[in-house]
Amino acid sequence: MPFIEFLFKPKNELEKGGRQSVQIASADENEPSKPCPNCRKMVPLSQLWANHNTCECGYHFRMNARQRINFICDTDTFSEWDAGVVSRDILDFPGYITKLENTRNACGESEAVICGRAKIEGEDCCIFVMEPYFMMGSMGTVVGEKITRTFERAMELGLPVVGYTVSGGARMQEGILSLMQMAKTSGAVKRHSDAGLFYLTVITDPTTGGVTASFAMEGDVILAEPGALIGFAGPRVIEQTTRKKLPAGFQKAEFVMEHGFVDAIVPRSTQKATIAQLLRMHTGGERVG
């Protein structure tokens, strides 16, 4: 499938004309389709799926964690760790148990991250992929523990880690213990790094708060998806606090790269090949082909 280069500067959702899904459309009558928030065309679902949830204009739609694993890992190479572990209501937080149950039922995942071991174009690695549809990828103790264990196992196995981040930050229903997961995961990243092993992060839309302020920004190489929102504080909070108009493209991946905090922006069309190449370059492998 041809992929048109990502040439435009995505708008911040607070800018005029940013992120409104206005349906303008003349879609194929017979096929279900979805409006693109960027070019506003109706994208037929079959085309969307064939392009890994991206529109021809370059817009990257959100992707759930299983889709990502299927898309990035070689067929049948992914073996999951700590599957099915569920969070407990440690603090007796009002409504948390119900929220967890509802989310599990709606999303089909047990928690906001999936971890395991896989091959990417034949390169052996450990991988964690956060789930945007599970409480917006918020980090509680289970997420923190699973990611920490991924780095610990990667150390034992002498393998690199590939991490896909998407998160609204710390999970407030787990209070201070969710904050502590920033320190716990950072400690694990540090040990893995001190062992001379490679850690690659791919930041996807949106990654904010405690995840940005810990393992998302700790990779040896930090990639981002086009148009992904990357920040510590969210744009709405900043606008409310400062009462200033946010600059064009504020906190978008392109903006964050311009300011020096992301190594490269890699669209899904070339993501797998880029990750595999970086893995190869860090594991002593020779150039293939």
């Binding site: 302020a213 810990s214 920004m217 504080a233 200033k244 600059p247 906190q251 300011h259």
Partner: peptide, 16 residues
């Protein structure tokens, strides 16, 4: 929480 703080990498500074 502000524009300059984000431009200069608040998240990265805290992580480090």
């Amino acid at each position: 929480c502000g524009i300059g703080a984000e431009e200069r990498g608040q998240g990265q500074a805290i992580a480090q």
